[in-house]
């Protein structure tokens, strides 16, 4: 198979984008699920605080999601910027 340097770089960039997104999605997935579970426990214990707990949970999840977003940005850079 003949493959020039540019094609190789492009292929490796796409492969890297896939790996970055796939591995980077593990951490936020686990972390957000854990936060949601803890919030469910807290709502079960104190149902009258459900509004505050939901708001805090959403903010915490959005912050812990940021590592996944970084890997998304890296994947987008690899896909659209590396030629």
């Amino acid at each position: 198979m003949d493959m020039s340097g540019a094609d190789f770089v492009r292929g490796m960039a796409l492969l890297g984008a896939g790996i970055a997104m796939g591995l980077g999605a593990i951490g936020p997935g686990v972390g957000e699920g854990y936060a949601a579970g803890k919030a469910c426990e807290a709502v079960g214990r104190k149902p009258e605080e459900a509004g505050l707990l939901t708001r805090t949970m959403l903010v915490g999840q959005a912050v812990s999601e940021s590592t996944g977003i970084y890997s998304l940005v890296v994947a987008l850079l690899l896909m659209f910027v590396v030629k």
């Binding site: 912050v63 999601e65 940021s66 977003i69 970084y70 940005v73």
Partner: peptide, 16 residues
């Protein structure tokens, strides 16, 4: 870097 990339990544990723 963290707060600006978080907002940018979410909106950009969502639109893509």
């Amino acid at each position: 870097v963290s707060i600006s990339f978080r907002l940018y990544g979410n909106i950009m990723g969502g639109s893509i």
